[in-house]
Design a protein around this nucleic acid. Structure first.
Lengths: 344, 344
DNA sequence: CTGAAAGCGCTTACAG
DNA sequence: CTGAAAGCGCTTACAG
């Protein structure tokens, strides 16, 4: 089966009627519609996307831009894959397809985004891993392409975004550690300009302040968001004098490397250093002792991201009248055995 | 900047000349070409993909289909992300863009593929996680869409494919364990119909046979390809009488759960059970004791997959004249401390 | 309710 | 070397 022309010839009706029948337009005889649908099914006809796109000016495709640089790959947990499922559960109801656009490691993310937008590959874009100053946001605003950012940015606030509650995480973690007697609490923060690092550190400072503890910048360890980063953070911690009695990690995978480094030094997480991790998941769940971390539903986050995005698109906004433009996604602390009070 | 029309008007030349200049056709005055390129850059013009695709019949996009079902998500390591980088390094040289097409968990993979192909979203497809009988292969062959399968299938052999050397892995692992004195070696195999499970088990049987050891089907543990699966496999092993002295795992992440389950039982990998894992990577690398596993370059694998695919496409085949249609990707054993000889 | 026709943005024979 | 024109496969006013 090639195109709508062949299908129309086969049915001996005009391509206009075929198109209308297929697209569920009301002004089609029900018997005609039935015949068209049946024939399309039988012959395996599906409209060529380029033809539709060119005519309609829309692609019915939503893009999710991710990085594929070494750093992102190293940090690869199931975050995006889990998110995808939630996104698609919303998009599929509108006949929108999700495609993932992995920015090549060598290409500048800003340039890559520009190229994808200019080629009109997608109707809307989901960007992630926002930086403190993120030019992609300005570019998308300027080009009037609907988008939602997964992560806030300091350079713009009036666009649609969804972000994890990094302040809340910092606050819960610090309060809990202080409550069990810790006063010297280190933190492993990203070594890049990614915005979440700033939000997290702000939350950390504020939480310390709330607890009457002075902020000490030497307790902020910069590390990569990977197992390797956690290993590095533990090495840094080992060299501190005096050593903080607790540490809060900002990435799920860091805990794995940190545990390993402590073991190599003959030390034990929980006993020698209280550890609170970030997002709980299979990685941290199988650690011994079990990691105290924060729970969230990736699927539900995906649903919210998708709904937030659609609510900014005129064609879909009516379906989501009450959708907020911004959302800070809560995370719930799940107690493990990795963060008891300090040995006194 | 809207379209080629605007750019042509701006330059006061015809759209045909603009198109030829932009596409590097030889019959364009060099001064004209310079002006066009300059103006396009200045005004940010990039050809609308739908227009090009419709006219040319090609999209200049390659699709990588992945699953996004619970099983795939759970098994999410950085496999696809790492692969992506290698793929793009080849594609970018031909101005081809890679997009990832995540099949929604609820949708049938065969149907999803059909839809994507029928809509003409991509010029070629990379499919992965091939099953023993994989209808996607037949569908793609029948539709004459260029494709490469990452993974073999029993239902077809004459298409392009690249696969990891599961027989070689089984052979190396068994030989090594036997050499250090093991005679009772269990194996954790996937519980699905994924083809690699069959290949791996065939290799396992052959390697046992080579070593004069009888195959015992009760030593084959079926488990999910995740941490949870490894945890489950260890539970199964704990119940065996007599317990095999060694186990070979078919997925990277299984080792994490297996280690955990052993620890819960007061047992130690290496001492109480020799363990050989699959692909080495950050997950297994940080285990204690260090996991014996197999090394490969994901990036190089991506390069080979991309080249294999392009060699099947008439437009790109001339660039890869010597490319084989099939490739079994070797993996090299990296010794850790998880698989010493049995305690006698 | 249906058909004929225009036109979305491009590329590419074809003339000149 | 350049321009004018056709046409890729669709959808959608517009007539009837």
């Amino acid at each position: 089966m090639k195109g709508i022309r062949q299908l129309a010839d086969y049915l001996e009706i005009s391509i206009g009627t075929v198109s209308r029948a297929l697209n569920g337009k009301p002004d089609v005889n029900e018997e005609t519609r039935r015949r068209v649908l049946e024939a399309a099914e039988k012959l395996g006809y599906v409209a060529n996307q380029s033809g539709r796109s060119l005519r309609q000016g829309t692609t019915n495709v939503i893009g999710l831009m991710t990085g594929s640089d070494a750093q992102t790959v190293e940090n690869a947990d199931n975050f995006f894959l889990g998110l995808t499922d939630g996104l698609q559960s919303v998009f599929s109801g509108h006949n929108l397809d999700l495609i993932v656009l992995p920015c090549p490691g060598e290409e500048d993310p800003d340039e890559y985004l520009k190229r994808m937008v200019a080629r009109r590959m997608v109707d809307a874009m989901i960007i992630s891993a926002t930086r403190r100053i993120d030019r992609r946001v300005d570019f998308l605003k300027q080009n009037r392409l609907p988008f939602v950012a997964l992560g806030r940015t300091a350079s713009s606030t009036d666009h649609a975004w969804v972000d994890l509650d990094f302040e809340g995480v910092a606050k819960s973690a610090i309060d809990r550690l202080v409550a069990s007697g810790h006063r010297s609490i280190a933190v492993a923060a990203p070594d890049s300009d990614i915005n979440l690092g700033h939000v997290f550190l702000d939350g950390y400072r504020r939480a310390l302040d709330d607890n009457g503890i002075a902020y000490d910048s030497s307790l902020v360890i910069r590390a990569k968001s990977s197992e390797q980063g956690g290993y590095h953070a533990a090495s840094e911690w080992l060299q501190m004098r005096p050593r903080p009695t607790a540490i809060v990690l900002i990435y799920e995978l860091m805990a794995v490397g940190l545990y390993r480094r402590l073991a190599e030094a003959g030390l034990e997480p929980g006993r020698d250093l209280a550890v609170i991790g970030f997002r709980d998941g299979p990685r941290g769940q199988f650690l011994e002792p079990r990691l105290t971390s924060f729970r969230m539903s990736l699927h539900d986050l995906g649903v919210t991201v998708a709904q937030t995005l659609l609510s900014t698109m005129p064609a879909y906004a009516p379906f989501y009248p009450a959708q907020a433009r911004h959302c800070i996604w809560p995370m719930v602390l799940v107690a493990g055995e990795s963060d008891p009070g300090p040995v006194s």
